[in-house]
Nucleic acid binder design. Structure first.
Length: 102
DNA sequence: TGTTTGACGGACA
DNA sequence: CTGTCCGCCAAAC
């Protein structure tokens, strides 16, 4: 039986929870870790469904270019800088903060 | 069942 | 560096 959407969501949530503080993951990276390569857009859709008061570190997810594409980019940037991730010209250095998934 | 949408990714000018 | 274009694909419509 194909994986229901909820099953995928749960895996994504778990992965999200594993991103170390002060580090960053990309949508494509998460999709891959969740076992669904090329579904980066689905990750975004799932994140958009998170409750605004979630404890999950949704702010540690940006696109492959180190750029924030989240509608609430201001809040995301604020949260990132609060944990030591500095944006330079609206960009995050994946070289420096990129999460090297195990 | 066909079409549109989108918190993406990568190639290219 | 920026803007554009195209491939991808589940969800929403």
């Amino acid at each position: 039986m194909a994986e229901s959407r909820q099953f995928t969501e749960e895996r994504v949530w778990q992965i999200l929870h594993q991103i170390p503080k002060g580090q960053i993951a990309t949508y494509g990276q998460i999709a891959k870790l969740a076992g669904i390569p090329r579904h980066s857009r689905l990750i975004g859709q799932i994140l958009s469904g998170l409750p605004p008061d979630t404890k999950l570190p949704w702010h540690r997810v940006i696109n492959s270019q180190g750029r924030i594409t989240n509608p609430a980019k201001d809040r995301q940037q604020l949260r990132l800088e609060e944990e030591g991730v500095t944006l330079i010209n609206g960009r995050v250095s994946l070289k420096v903060y990129g999460w090297d998934a195990s």
